[in-house]
Structures are given as C-alpha cells and as structure tokens.
Nucleic acid binder design. Structure first.
Length: 517
RNA sequence: CGGGGUGUAGCGCAGCCUGGUAGCGCACUUGAUUUGGGAUCAAGGAGUCGGAGGUUCAAAUCCUCUCACCCCGACCA
C-alpha cells in the first residue's frame, strides 16, 4: 500500500515535470547516473556510466573513420591570438565565446593565491573553440605537392566555448568531441569527403544510436563560420524540438588562403588546397536521452549499452538464495562467452523491485529474473526495457507485454536475437514518434497553429526567402530552418514545387522548419 | 548581458513573513523480520543554515554587500 502510493506520487511528479522538458531531462540524467553539474561554470562532470556510453559511441565512430581511410592525431589546446586574426570570418564566428589565457603564473598574496601581474603573456592564447586554425597552420608545413594530398586526419579532443547558457550534454562550456580536418587537391574530392562523413554520422545516428535523422544543408545564415557549405544531420527530440547532431563542412579554399597553403599540381601549377571539417560531440548523449527516455529513466540502444543484460536472482529462503545466485552466475558465464555484457545483481537486502527500477533507470535493455519457479520449470523470465507502445494501451498491459518466458536452453540465442530486435525496434519507435510530429504545411496560419495549438515538431514548408525572412520567422514563431533536405530525404508527401510560405514566391523544394535546441 | 528563482545533513526540501540557538523525507550505520515491481519496525550517525558585514541580550530568520548555481530570454560553429 505504502509502496503503491509512493510509486504513484513519484510517477505523477515526473509526468508533471514532463511539461517542463528541462526538468524531465535532468531527472533522467540523475536516474541514469550519467553526469553532474560541476562547480565550474557551465561545465559538466561525466560520470562513469555516461562516459561508458560515450566510449562505445567513440568506438563506433572511430571504426568508421578508419574504414574510410582516416587516421587520428592530436593538436594543441592553445591557439595564439595572431593565428586567429588571419581568418577574420571564422574568428568572428567564435569571438564572443572564447576563453583567453593571458598569464602564466600565480603568486601568494595576503594568504590568497592571485594571478601574478608580472607574468602576463606577450601574446594571449585562446583555448580552442575548434581547431581549424591551429591545424591548418601545421598542414602548411606538410603540404608541398599533390602527392602529399589528401590529408585525412581526425582528432579526439576537448574544446571550450564560453556559451551564455549551458545545458548538460546539449551545450556545455567544455565538451568532448571529434573533429576531422582534411585537405584535398580538388573541390570535387573535398565535397565527396564532406558527404561521405555526413553519411557516416547518419549511419551512426540511425543504426547505432537508433535516432532517425534528416540529412541536409544549412542555409547561409546557419553555416559554420568560414564554411562555403555546411551539411548537417537533424534529429527530432520527444518534445518536438530539433537537435543538430552533427555537421560536415566544405571549407573551400578559405583556410588554405588564410594560411597560404598551396601545392604543386601534376602540371606544375600552384593551387590552394581544398578543406573540409566535420564533428560530433558529447551532445550526442543528450540526443540519446531526449529521443528514447521515458518516465522511468533512460532507454539505451543495445549497441551503446555498457551492460546488455542484468540478472536478478529472486529468493525467499537461504537455500533458494544460494541456488538462484549460482544459477545467475552460470547463465551470466554462458552469455558472456557469447559476447554479451552481463551484470549479476546479487546485492543482499535490496528488494527485487528496487533493483528493477534502478537498472531500468540506467537503461539496461534486458533483465533476466531468476527465481525458484524458473529453476524448477527450467525456464527463464526475460523482461525487455521497452516495447513499441500501442495506442490506448494501459501501463499494466505494457508491462505484461515486456515480459516473456522461454526454455532455459534457449537463453543465449534468445537474448542475442532479442538484443538485435530491440536495436531495430528502438529506431522504429523513434521513427513513429517523429512521424507523428511531422507535418507538411502550406500557410502561415497552419504553421502558427502547428507550433502553438498543436504540439509542434518538424514543419515541411516551401521556402524562397532570404536570411531576413528567416529572422522574421524566428521572431514570430521561434522557429528556424533546420536544413534544406537532400532530395532522397524528402518525405513523399512533401515532394514537388510550390510557393514560399512567407513570400509566396515560387519554390523548388520544401525545407524543414522547427524549434531547436 | 536582462528577468526570475534557489543556496539549511550525501540528495530533495520545510522552517524565514511574526528573531529565542535546527527539523522532515530519502540515503547511510546496526539489529530483527522480509525478498516474482520501489519492504517494515526499532535504535543510531551526520548540518559553524553559501560567504562577509550590520541591527539585537539573542539571527537560518531582519538589513546591506557579495559569491555560486538553476530556470526563462538574448546568444548558440
């Protein structure tokens, strides 16, 4: 009775919080034990569980980078101010959010540690907000001939952007990421690289993270500072807002010209190098949380779950305890030898229900309960973290549907195939949610209704406006053009030509508009 | 940078209006009974109330200053 009551209270409070997405989001992070606010402004502590997910994501990305011919390297954290001055446009894009190192020594004064005014640096150092500048200063020395190209390098690093407002994972002052920086002899080759890496990101988003994305190009106003073209993948979070999950830039010859990086082509002529850069960050963990989580906590796609299966022994007597725990470890060993990561939760003095909630909150995809009855019947009780919800289904039915009993002998094969099923079902589940909030819209009235009276989401609208028009839309509806989707990304009902939603001018294709993080 | 809010035990909070020397829930420790969806009872440990100054016989409470964080906005490759 008391339990049921407590549970209800908790459920209610979380559901109430769901109205305020920020609170719900923080709650999931707390339950899943992913990260903490740090005492350092805008910075985040990534806790072991959160970091374990990031490591798996890193691995998936890194494997693909290697498979497409890239290698890893590392460049300095500090950028001399003068380096940035060479690339005005690029530098201006980051000017407002740079951490600057001006001194190199501390001294004790009146019992306090203060910056030694005597130690001022002749030239301030910028803590990298991104590494184009410092990397291209180096590439200059590496490139003389077309034979030195292409350079296909990736860096795993931290960067600092002094953002006005921060949110755990989604926008922190310091964050972890990878940044690819490549140099090519021709525009064609560079542009191919940009598309190739965007495809890698989309592949990881959908097939590893189970987050559906739209691939497209940014409008000039939304482009990376200094880029000729910015491609992106955009995901839809459960509140209908868009999240930019990765970008891939064609930088043209801008950086080569700024740093004077020329090479001799096969005809013996001097040419400027064509550049690309592409990156994804710990923001992806935020995307993962916001796309899949429910009121209980995190839901992890099996491919990113640090633990695939948790085994919970259930017992009354001491004898049963011994038996079920022994059986739990036997099963765990079998699963482990099949490459499945298993955790046996044999902690004493904690009720099974408490364990269930704890591991569900952390997002573990599968649970196996082992009790005396299961041993007797020679069967296993499998409980999935999620199933695709049916309309009008009660909590109770949902819970029932998540549970299944299988013969003990089929344990390993069933778990293996179930994990694969869940991986694809999670993507399908996210697709269903995203589709439900995607709408083709032709008038400003419907557009306004979609974002005020209805829940909002992705609006496919015809667009022939300019950046002034984008500003107007942003002011009026708090929406922005997330991307100009690639032709193969356009949903069937959004194909064809039409008239711009704002100006009424003829438009060749629709763009995706949404509120965004 | 503007608006709002919060700092009290590891976490979440009450107490502040109306000043009298700190409390609740969770967590933790010990013991007993429990264990198929968040256990119960009993006993216990833990806080210089964000910091500094002021008013007062007396400050978590009132006043001044300050710091930090959170939320909303502006900003956001």
């Amino acid at each position: 009775m008391a339990n049921a009551q407590k549970q209800n209270e908790q459920q209610e409070s979380i559901t109430a919080r769901a109205a305020n997405y920020g609170q719900w989001y923080l709650d999931v992070i707390r339950r899943a034990d992913l990260a903490d606010h740090s005492s350092v402004r805008g910075c985040m502590v990534i806790k072991p569980h959160g970091y374990a997910i990031w490591e798996k994501l890193q691995r998936e990305l890194d494997d693909r980078f290697k498979a497409t011919g890239h290698v890893n390297a590392y460049f300095p954290l500090f950028i001399p101010l003068s380096f940035l001055s060479k690339e005005e446009q690029h530098a201006a894009g980051f000017a407002k959010e740079c951490a600057v190192v001006t001194h190199h020594r501390l001294v004790s004064k009146d019992g306090k540690v203060v910056v030694d005014p005597e130690s001022q640096l002749e030239e301030p150092l910028i803590v990298r907000p991104t590494s184009e500048t410092i990397i291209w200063a180096q590439y200059k020395n590496w490139i003389q001939s077309y034979r030195d190209l292409p350079i296909l390098i990736n860096q795993w690093a931290n960067v600092v952007r002094w953002e006005m407002r921060t949110r755990l994972f989604l926008r922190t002052a310091e964050f972890l990421w990878q940044e690819g920086h490549t140099a090519h002899a021709t525009e064609e080759e560079a542009r191919e690289e940009v598309v190739r890496m965007l495809d890698v990101y989309a592949d990881v988003a959908e097939n590893v993270m189970a987050v559906p994305v739209i691939k497209g190009a940014k409008t000039p106003g939304e482009r990376f500072a200094g880029a000729v073209d910015t491609l992106c993948i955009e995901g839809m979070m459960q509140d209908g807002k868009a999240l930019q999950m990765g970008t891939s830039h064609y930088l043209g010859q801008n950086f080569a010209k700024a740093q004077d990086v020329q090479f001799l082509n096969s005809k013996g002529e001097l040419e400027y190098v064509h550049a690309t850069s592409w990156g994804v960050s710990t923001r992806l963990i935020g995307a993962l949380i916001m796309t899949h989580s429910d009121d209980v906590g995190m839901i992890l796609p099996p491919r990113l779950a640090p633990i695939h299966v948790v085994v919970v022994p259930i017992y009354k007597t001491e004898e049963e305890q011994k038996k079920t725990i022994a059986e739990a470890h036997t099963l765990a060993a079998e699963l482990k030898s099949a490459g499945i990561v298993v955790k046996v939760d044999d902690r004493e003095g904690i009720m099974p229900g408490a364990k269930f909630y704890e591991w569900e909150g952390k997002g573990v995809p599968l649970r196996i309960e082992i009790g005396p009855k299961d041993i007797e019947k020679n069967s296993l009780c499998l409980v999935r973290r999620f199933v695709i919800e049916k309309e009008g289904e009660s909590e109770q039915d949902l819970r029932k549907r998540r549970k299944s009993f299988i013969p003990r002998a089929e344990g390993v094969t069933t778990v293996k195939s179930l994990l694969e099923t869940m991986q694809s079902e999670l993507l399908e589940r996210a697709r269903i949610m995203s589709r439900a909030r995607t709408k083709v819209i032709d008038t400003l009235e419907d557009f306004e209704k979609f974002f005020t009276q209805e829940n909002g989401g992705f609006a496919w609208v015809h667009w022939a406006g300019n950046s002034d028009g984008e500003d107007q839309m942003a002011k009026r509806f708090e929406t922005s053009i997330r991307c100009l989707p690639f032709p193969d990304q356009i949903i069937p009902e959004a194909r064809g030509e039409g008239k711009c939603i704002l100006t009424g001018k003829p438009s060749k294709q629709r763009v995706v508009m949404a509120k965004a993080y």
